[in-house]
Amino acid sequence: MNTDLLEMFTSRLEDAGGWCRIISSPGSINDIIRGKYSYEKKDMIYAGSVEKQLGDVELDGIDITTIHQNDRRKSLVNAKLGITGCAGLIAETGTAGLITSVSEPRELSLLPETHIVIAYSDQLFATLDEFLAKVTAEYGDAQLPSITLVTGPSRTADIEKKLVVGVHGPVEFGVVVIDRSE
């Protein structure tokens, strides 16, 4: 694991108002979330694809793909926490790059008041150039889905330049990085 890059990622994400936790195995994810927030299980919605990657670990909450298409928006409006994966982390700016997919629609990272990204240490890129180059190479001539870069919670400084966190999007944003170096 590139510790320098990970350190840079963490400090730059913190500068942007987000938090980052690095863990050595996925087992403690639920504890981290419970330690930070007191949400009920029904208020937490996650991308099913993320849980699949975690192996034996079951995430607290509801898999979005088990909610009927027509009810998803309503569930997400009422949800407190949205958990997604990502296509990469960018150290230089403290950014998570998300790619839209069936199990990870954009509303999941947009409507709930807290958004948590679960990522792996080998998904870390130094710069946006490297991240985008990887994504475009992966898709080749196929059509790219929409990509969202997230750097911290939603914020504004429209009133006297005073920073206010939590405007129209998530009020809290965090990244859990699972060290996969061994």
Partner: peptide, 20 residues
């Protein structure tokens, strides 16, 4: 260093973009 959000939109809802 980066704004909170950068949306790179590649099309309306379709088989490639399940939402939007």
């Amino acid at each position: 260093r980066m704004t909170s959000y950068v949306s790179m939109i590649n099309g309306p809802r379709s088989q490639y973009n399940p939402d939007g």
